[in-house]
Design a protein around this nucleic acid. Sequence first.
DNA 1: AAGTGATTTGAAAACGTTTTCAAGTGGTGC
DNA 2: GCACCACTTGAAAACGTTTTCAAATCACTT
Lengths: 338, 338
Amino acid sequence: MSTIKDVAAQAGVSISTVSRVINHPDSVVPVKRQAVLAAMQALDYRPNSLARALVSQRSDCVGLVVGEIDSPFFAQLMAGVHRVLLDAGKHVIVTAGYHQAEQERESIRFLLERRCDALIVHAKALPEEELAALLKGSTPVVLINHLLPEFEERCVYLDNEEGAYLATRHLLSRGHRRIGYIGSNRGIEDGADRERGYQRALAEFGLEADRKDQVRAFPDEAGGHDAMAEVLRRSPDLTAVFAYNDAMAGGAINMLKDSGYAVPEQLSVVGFDDVILARLLSPRLTTVRYPIGEMGALAAQLVLHDLEERFPAVEQPRRFTPRLIERHSVRQVSPDAN
Amino acid sequence: MSTIKDVAAQAGVSISTVSRVINHPDSVVPVKRQAVLAAMQALDYRPNSLARALVSQRSDCVGLVVGEIDSPFFAQLMAGVHRVLLDAGKHVIVTAGYHQAEQERESIRFLLERRCDALIVHAKALPEEELAALLKGSTPVVLINHLLPEFEERCVYLDNEEGAYLATRHLLSRGHRRIGYIGSNRGIEDGADRERGYQRALAEFGLEADRKDQVRAFPDEAGGHDAMAEVLRRSPDLTAVFAYNDAMAGGAINMLKDSGYAVPEQLSVVGFDDVILARLLSPRLTTVRYPIGEMGALAAQLVLHDLEERFPAVEQPRRFTPRLIERHSVRQVSPDAN
DNA sequence: AAGTGATTTGAAAACGTTTTCAAGTGGTGC
DNA sequence: GCACCACTTGAAAACGTTTTCAAATCACTT
């Protein structure tokens, strides 16, 4: 691969001049500029961005750590971040933590070693002190979905409790009184927050969350399927179920239909996230919209402002509030029928 | 951020020694090694991978160009590549071409400038000459889903025609004789290949593909919805439909149900890709499995072998053959009933 | 005691850029 | 015809590493 030296030689100028036509084209006289351009073309020259970043101390890259690469949820996050960063001429390097502290640590280390100008991190397994230490470092970081009170303005997050509350309230307002919860067994905060929201809504109606109405499983389709079976076994009189996420809700719905239950006629289901899937399920899933794409975009704007003054500070609050999306998986029921 | 010099100073050794404890720990005497390790710890030292890559001429990164970042299909591709590369100690930089030549070109340029050791490229918009030129370059490249006869062993691809043939044959074998095709309007080869497969199957049964039974639309849920409506308007007597991908099939199914059609009782549907969605739709979608994750893994093994001899050459054929996955969206029909 | 060979070390060159600085060029105003 | 200035240019330093090479050290052998 040809270097700046080759180009300089071929064009009969110094390497400084070549560098200048790359970075400040106007500062070199047209005839030489043309010669350099021609030489670059002829040699298929590509500036070595490593060398460039090394001396200029900026790579124009921002690193993104997601939970996993192949999930519709994180796909939306990546897309949101990508969109605003690409427009700004930055590039994104994506890395996955796979929900394990060690992998998350390794991902962050990789990105830092690669000298990303900033990091956007979704890491739930790492201890808070480690995250705090990261925030304190010299590389700007914004955290997704992990509120560190100490660094509130650097955290973009969703009010999970409110989301679960909304979902449960919706079920309650439709007359349901026996409502199960299909949760995640991944020991992360979201889970606890959502359970709290579920319980709060129940409490408002004078109901108490029964432990046997709550089952945790791996937060995917299969987990939803199994959890649904289990919760139904334990509490056959449930009229509705709130699921930790849409994939679990989908699995639950499948399980129900397979067992001859009609959804929502016999059992109502509410999901969480509003991934594409929700619109494709049948019945179309009533769910809580998780604006993860917009959250990614906000995080991107935050780091953009850190990186260059030409990007305005963002005034928008970092806390996002979820919204209930009503579709067809919930049915009105008479509370007295229970 | 501290450098190797700082570490050397703090440990009272030369930078060569520090470099050695990083790269060949056994070659430095234990007492100094400990001192260096301690200094690194104390200073939170992280080797600058840019500098390292610059001198050693290898970045341990492979670049991956996908069609778009937020699609379940490409998510599987990324995951497959990621899995084998991470195990081998390599890192992956992902970039999206968004199905536009200019974006694809830019993505490749970025990856090349960043001095990735190898590239895995899924690009359908770029002209073949450009791809061929890329393959001829000094950086090892493997192409996904784009067969360049000139570089056959560098191309990992699916036999699209066979897939469509399988799907249509399945419908035919279940008695269907009036079969519509919901295609993609993105002018890429896959589309043409799949149409050919569809026509070939039809021809084997002495049927001719009627132009009015074929509608093209944007290959997503909404496109599938609209195309289904259109094809039904044109040819109300269809008993089955083959869709370009699962998302379109999902949209089509939704459209059908909304209009009061029962699936598969009144109309059978077959998809393509077998993304997660297919299992969650109801009825569960009969579809053609696109082993894109495995294809990504194969591509990764190919580049691994290019990069280091310790990775074995891969003997496996580069051409993947799709497989029909029977689920519940196709119904047996009596051919004579038409 | 001196020589041998193996081990450990540091100095310096190299990787491919950008940037600073000073020198060179040519034009302008008097 | 000369001083001044603006513009353009090249040499060289710097970025943070790895690696080569030769020097230094050390333990043995004779």
